[in-house]
């Protein structure tokens, strides 16, 4: 009897129901989408181009676009061409110059996407090491400590990639790590990351990318967009909308980055 009363009470109070919603959606026409970056080291520069879809998604995946014209022009008018390879990724053989302003132009059919970005200054890695700490369980942890000359005039944003060399070559440990210089130690010219590594001794490569704040904001907003869902609820805590971008006539972001790398053997 108690169980029945409980169930009845729950049913009485649980009166929410669900069904298809009758709402009007404004379908958008497909536009070019660009992702990738142009850096001071040509092999690291790449762009992937796809087309957006309307609300009705009738096929799997987003097929890469390989018939678009993609150029990047510097402030002097020098044109750098990007061409698609066998992997459908657009690449170039030209290095970017830190501090230079570049304009990207993508033409696909009668659609044109443009964007402009100034490559950040090059921040060189002077050294890196792994600092040991002991956790609450008595295990030894290794955290990366990076030595570099952070420009002090403003807040700077970075991304770091850490690679470990095994018999296959260098492979990336962990995902890309984004940070700013809030905890930069001016006396030691260093910054410690909180990520933990346990690969042991060997050859490590660290790549430090200097990024524009607007690019970091774009990535952060994208990250939130990906987690927040896209309906409507009285409890939504993120503001829905598109990330702020430097692209016009399309979607995505034209990122220019300057990076430096250092390879070192760690005992």
């Amino acid at each position: 009897m108690k169980k029945i009363s409980f169930i009845l009470l729950v049913l009485l109070l649980s009166v929410a129901c669900e069904k298809d919603a009758d709402i009007e959606i404004q379908e958008m026409d497909p536009v070019p989408v660009i992702e990738g970056k142009f850096s001071n080291f040509a092999p690291d520069s790449f762009f992937k181009i796809t087309m957006s879809k309307g609300f009705e998604r009738d096929t799997y995946g987003y097929r890469p676009v390989i018939d678009a014209q993609l150029t990047v022009t510097d402030s002097q008018g020098h044109i750098i061409n990007f061409v698609p390879g066998n992997d459908s990724i657009y690449r170039t053989t030209s290095n970017g110059i830190p501090g230079e302003t570049y304009t990207l132009k993508l033409i696909k059919g009668n659609q044109q996407l443009t964007a402009s970005s100034t490559m950040p200054s090059l921040v060189q890695i002077t050294d890196f090491e792994f600092v040991t700490e002991t956790d609450n369980d008595g295990n030894t942890e290794y955290k990366l400590k990076l030595y570099f000359d952070d420009p002090q005039s403003r807040t700077d944003y970075y991304m770091v990639q850490i690679f470990y060399h095994d018999y296959t070559g260098f492979y990336q440990l962990d995902s890309d790590i984004y940070f700013n210089d809030y905890t930069y130690d001016k006396s030691e010219h260093s910054l410690s990351l909180s990520n933990v590594y346990d690969s042991g001794p060997g050859d490590y490569k660290v790549k430090l990318f200097h990024l524009n704040k607007t690019y970091v904001d774009y990535l952060n907003t994208l990250d939130r967009l990906g987690n927040m869902g896209y309906g409507d609820s009285p409890f939504q805590i993120f503001v829905p909308g598109n990330p702020e971008t430097n692209v016009q006539g399309g979607i995505g972001y034209f990122a220019t980055v300057a990076f430096d790398s250092l390879i070192k053997h760690i005992n």
Partner: peptide
């Protein structure tokens, strides 16, 4: 309210696009 009008892909993830 703000509803998506389409979708696009960045870095293998799909995102809504709001007009």
């Amino acid at each position: 309210v703000t509803f998506p009008a389409g979708f696009y892909q960045i870095n293998g993830h799909e995102y809504p696009y709001f007009t």
